[in-house]
Simulated assay, not measured.
Amino acid sequence: MADLQEAVVTLPSAPASVSAARRYVCDRLAEWGLPSDAPALDSVRLIVSELATNAVLHTCGRSPEFTVLMRLEHSERLHIGVRDRHPRWPRLQPADEPGEACPLADFDLDPCALDPGDLDPGAGYGGDPGAGGREDGGRGMVIVGHLADESGGALRITPTEEGGKTVWIVLPWTVRVL
Rank of each mutant, 00 (worst) to 15 (best):
V142N: 04
P12F: 00
G133V: 05
A148P: 01
M141L: 15
I80A: 07
V142C: 02
S36P: 05
A20R: 11
P15Y: 00
L4R: 10
D136S: 15
V8S: 10
D108Q: 14
A7T: 08
Y125V: 05
T174W: 07
A16E: 15
A105V: 09
P39A: 09
A101W: 06
A105W: 08
A131W: 00
L57M: 01
P12V: 06
V142A: 06
V170D: 08
H146M: 05
G153H: 05
Q93R: 14
A154S: 11
A101D: 13
K165T: 04
A20C: 01
V44M: 13
S63L: 04
A131P: 00
E150I: 14
V8K: 09
R28I: 00
A38H: 13
G130W: 13
G122Y: 07
T166R: 04
R139C: 04
V82T: 12
L109N: 07
R134K: 11
P12R: 14
W32D: 09
H86M: 04
D128L: 02
G33E: 00
M70N: 08
P90L: 00
E76T: 11
L155N: 01
T160E: 06
D96G: 14
P15K: 03
G140R: 01
L109I: 14
S43P: 02
R85V: 00
R85D: 11
D136M: 10
R77H: 08
W173T: 02
P87W: 05
D115P: 05
E6F: 03
E97T: 07
D96T: 02
A7I: 05
V170M: 09
E162N: 02
R83A: 14
V170F: 02
G130L: 11
G117R: 13
S75T: 01
R28E: 12
W168Q: 08
D96Q: 14
L119T: 01
G140M: 05
H146A: 13
R91G: 15
D128G: 03
L72H: 07
D110C: 11
E65Y: 07
V167E: 11
A131I: 00
T67H: 03
L69T: 04
N54A: 10
D118S: 06
V18T: 14
L92Y: 01
W32L: 01
H146Q: 15
A38G: 02
T53M: 05
